[in-house]
Amino acid sequence: MGAELSRHVKRNLVAYIALLPMAIVVIFAYLGTMAWSVRLSFSSSKLLPRYDFVGADQYLTLFDTPRWLTSLGNLAVIAFFFLLICFLLGTLLAIFIDQNVRAESLFRTVFLYPYAMSFVVAGLIWQWILNPDLGIQHTMHGFGFTDFVLDWVVNSEMVLYAVILATVWHGAGLVMALILAGLRGVDTEIWRATRIDGIPAWRVYVSIVLPMLRPMIITSLVLLSISIVKMYDVVVAMTNGGPGTASEVPAKFIMDNLFERANIGLATAASTVMLVTVLLVMAPVIYSQYFRKSGRAS
């Protein structure tokens, strides 16, 4: 058995060596750092890491910190509306574009270009457009509608929706592109069969075509979810968490505690919470998407 294994390794030795960089990256840069982060979250680290053990203290503090709780709530609201609107809007755009429209490629280009731009740009530009003294409100006042109010970026009640608007602008095209690609792959004979069966077009989309595109839909939602959990740049550029803490998000909370507030223990506790949440939510999706039909190498 042992001899066999060593023979196998010897025959494929170069392959093992070639995969060494990947192994190092996985073991140290991913798993090692993760473990270290988790370890620090049980310590009393402040400016510098300390290797004592304070149990769940940091977690208790964390969930006693209003700013963190606000961040979590904000993320939930943003993620919910962002995913929902991106999905609906992207799907509708794809379906409308699929109706044999003229200038199709122009529409496609227009709806997807924001996705090629950075989140910083998305945040900045919508901040200007929504800025009461510069953007839409200012323009409406200029036209004489002096009662017109659109102050989302400076209104702590509405600021989340401003962030949602910017992120939807950035991400809806992704759903459109993936679903459109899927729609194009649907066998034309299926469409003919539905016409013989007398099924109205909207019903065909809802009951037949969209269920067929489940993999694309899941993929686009997974991609969008990842970007929304990591969301940092857009908030920094657009509102910097304000007004007050009205648009704080977890990623920013962690960064602030790491680099400005010198509270490493708390930051790592927060990042551990995110880590666990993401793994719990993502693991089944990743498993079903990438490993169920395993590649040839397995």
């Binding site: 066998d187 004979e189 299926i190 003919r192 069966d197 007398g198 009951s207």
Partner: peptide, 25 residues
């Protein structure tokens, strides 16, 4: 009634639903 070369069955529906879908509509 039409039968297609690629069958054109509705892939996400069971056989029973494939048969009955048009009638339900």
């Amino acid at each position: 009634g039409m039968v297609f070369q690629s069958y054109a069955l509705y892939p996400t529906m069971s056989v029973e639903r494939n048969l009955s879908f048009g009638l339900r509509i």
